[in-house]
Structures are given as C-alpha cells and as structure tokens.
Amino acid sequence: MKPNLFLTLSLFFLLTESILAQGGADDFMRSTGKIYSVVAVVLILFLVIVVFLFRLDSKINKLEKQIHNE
C-alpha cells in the first residue's frame, strides 16, 4: 500500500490538535516551554521524508517487476 502524505499528516495534525492540545496555556503541547511542539516539528519532517522514500520505493518495485516480465 502506498502511504498517502496528505492522509498521514492530517491524522497527525488532528491528533496533536484534539488530543494533546486540549485546554488553554497549560496543555501538554505547551508544557515545559513548548518543547513538545519542537518534537512535533521533528516528527513532521521525518514523516514527510519517510513517506517520500516509501513512494520512491514502490515506484522502483514496479520498474523491477516490469523488467522481470520482459
């Protein structure tokens, strides 16, 4: 299955917004000087690159199948 960048990230944003960032100034994402929003940024960066690599991987798989069939 091809990972969908849009789906992965909208799930991630929804998760941070609805579960982790409830309430006002003292929620989880804003605790300890907002360090968890930095963690979220690093995770997004990682997810974008990984999703791109997965898609590249599946494209190469397709090519390999094509070459084997010929």
Partner: peptide, 18 residues
C-alpha cells in the same frame, strides 16, 4: 520540493504554538 512541503508543514506546526 519535498523539503519545501516539509518546510511549510513544520512552519505551520511552529506557528500554532507561537
């Protein structure tokens, strides 16, 4: 372009908390 998309999305996350 993939880096650029990552840049926009990470910026969006940063903007939310600042």
């Amino acid at each position: 372009l993939v880096f650029g998309i990552a840049g926009i999305l990470t910026g969006s996350m940063w903007a939310k908390y600042t």
